[in-house]
Amino acid sequence: MIVAEQKSLDEIKKLVGSAQKVLVVGCGTCVTVCFAGGAREAAIVAAELRMSTKLDGSPKEVTDVTVQRQCEWEYLDEIAPKLGQVDIILSLGCGVGVQAIAEHFPGTWVVPGLNTKFMGLPTEQGVWAERCAACGDCILGLTGGICPIARCSKSLLNGPCGGSLDGHCEINADISCAWQLIYDRLNSMGKLEVLMDIQPPKNWQTSRDGGPRKIVREDLRLDKKEE
């Protein structure tokens, strides 16, 4: 899932600025399950904004709504009737959700209420950890299902480095050494020979180094002439 964290109320108030009518838009997918921007959080942020601005002496009219997925335009259509009644949208979606709203409603000012952090999973109640860096050329088949791109601080392809100490990373003892994890897993599965292949430098063009990415599936397009 995409994991995000809420911005502070002070920052949200600065982003909202002088707008009087605010629509807080939650998202029912990733940010709901990481407790950052679902229906409950949208209602709480709306209540906080109403009370805080009332205490400041300039009460705002704040309402909230949550769509199933902010990152698909079709789901955003349900908030279209409300746009004429608001000055600004405070999106509690990830960065994709904020941009989807901006693209779908060009005349509407939208600001983010979350900081989008990473793609990861909950490792225990209340703890989320990064697992994928979306490098665009998955090598998990070479590393026992543990990603050194996302989980090694140096994204090494042939690790570990000299900073690995007792299974931990040199930059922070709370971070497990990804390459130690990879070694331990391959060892436990009797597949250490996988590590005998030295990995050549990775082509990072499939990652962000190649610029913004896009996938076109001609078999799924409705109008193939359309660009």
């Binding site: 409950r40 709480i44 209540a47």
Partner: peptide, 11 residues
């Protein structure tokens, strides 16, 4: 009880 219920009471 959750935060929202308490906030609604204060509001």
């Amino acid at each position: 009880i959750d935060a929202l219920l308490v906030l609604q009471a204060f509001e």
